[in-house]
Design a binder for these strands. Structure first.
Length: 225
DNA sequence: GGCCAGGACACCA
DNA sequence: TGGTGTCATGGC
């Protein structure tokens, strides 16, 4: 079974090449992007990241001092802007109070401690926490998202009902504990999903031959208004 | 005009 | 423990 995962990884890597994730210039930018991209397309997140750069706000200390209302206006293009403003502020308050606003200090925590501390911040769930740990802190943890669960249950390697933790354990128990590998693998799964999602089904032959209809997220619903 | 996007949480039974 | 409503913009 371990060999199977490595084979899938190699297939995706050969098909799409290195993904060079996370697309950010600093660890703090990764944290911001991880929160902003919750249930949101990356192109919408990029608009906000650009705005924040223009305003020189991609620093924990400067963003902490920035007025909430003005920050919310900046976040508009990423959607759920009120929620995400609150979540960013929650993280900043946590970082300031416990680590003097210094990400490096936070990232010196052991992985398990770091993960629990992040999960204790309201608005940071498993995927966001793990993205921060892997892509900002550079520690080995496998990031699971909706694509991962759909793709690997479609391939028959996971139950459709597999939880976040079960999915993560499957990867981490069957792969070497390697930051670079985890980095690329998750990025490749996302890249694969972007090419073969329901709304954009045509992008050449599917390298995994999995049928490649990911379907929609089970919990995603558009407003009923 | 409807569907979807690199989730998380509150609330309910 | 598991299901459902809510949050919201922008591309296609």
């Amino acid at each position: 079974m371990p060999k199977k995962l490595i084979t899938i990884y190699q297939t995706l890597k050969k098909a799409y090449g290195s993904q060079h994730w996370w697309p950010a210039e600093s660890p703090f930018e990764v944290v911001v992007g991880a929160i902003l991209t919750q249930n949101t397309s990356w192109t919408n997140v990029e608009r906000v990241i650009s705005r924040l750069k223009e305003k020189n706000l991609l620093s924990a200390k400067r963003m902490s001092k920035f007025p909430v209302k003005a920050l919310a206006r900046c976040l508009r293009p990423a959607g759920y802007f009120n929620v995400k403003t609150r979540r960013l502020k929650n993280f900043l308050i946590f970082l300031t109070e416990e680590y003097g606003g210094n990400l490096k200090h936070l990232f010196t925590e052991p992985l398990a401690v770091l993960r629990q501390k992040l999960l204790d911040v309201n608005g940071i769930g498993p995927e966001t926490a793990d993205s921060i740990i892997l892509y900002a802190a550079g520690k080995p943890i496998f990031v699971v998202d909706g694509y991962t669960r759909r793709a690997f249950s479609k391939l028959g390697l996971l139950k459709a009902s597999a939880s976040y933790h079960e999915t993560q354990s499957y990867f981490m128990n069957n792969l070497p504990l390697n930051v670079k590998l985890f980095n690329e693998f998750h990025a490749l799964i996302v890249e694969h999903a972007k090419r073969f999602c329901k709304t954009r089904p045509i992008c050449g032959p599917c390298p995994l031959r999995s049928g490649c209809v990911y379907g929609r997220m089970h919990h995603t619903r558009t407003g009923s208004s």
